[in-house]
Design a protein around this nucleic acid. Sequence first.
DNA 1: TAGGCCATCTGGTCCT
DNA 2: AGGACCAGATGGCCTA
Length: 190
Amino acid sequence: MKTKNRPPRRRVPAQDPEAAAGERTPDGPQQGSGLELAKGLRSRTVRAQGARAEGGRRRPGASGPGGRRENSVQRRLESNERERQRMHKLNNAFQALREVIPHVRADKKLSKIETLTLAKNYIKSLTSTILTMSSGRLPGLDGPGPKLYQHYQQQQQQAAAGGALGATEPQPEGHLQRYSTQIHSFREGS
DNA sequence: TAGGCCATCTGGTCCT
DNA sequence: AGGACCAGATGGCCTA
């Protein structure tokens, strides 16, 4: 399934955090549900899990005098607004990135994961192109080419030494091929 | 209808 | 202390 062209959806922000919390289970999000079980396999920080185990989320202003509750509700609303703004800025950055990545799916908006993946491989393909052109393989090219290539090789070696995953990165020459294949696979919807 | 993608809310943690 | 960041949860929209 692929990303579609649809107008940006606008969800009405909850005016009352209590009301918003009421849409969920009273004791917090899905305690004991299948999602909760799956969550244990995900990468949430151990400390956060510990904090939850000690009582889970507290609903804002669930205790204390009314004045403090109002303060807490107000702070939550402000915090929500900041988080929305932050996410909007992040989405703007994604959009800016989409606009500079050449891809063949001009009729459809790239998803975030597609944008990041294409951007990564686009950068790699550009890098390999630059290196190819400046490494002295082209006759008559002088200048910093060989140094640039050596620098790149050093970086690759450091990355390989530091990488704990053991994943084998393709050689620079393969990046362009990979990028080209990828933009076509995205177009095909695979 | 299932699954993908997304916006939003939320509480915990980190950073200044 | 307060804001930024992060990640889980939830629900809506859309497409195959």
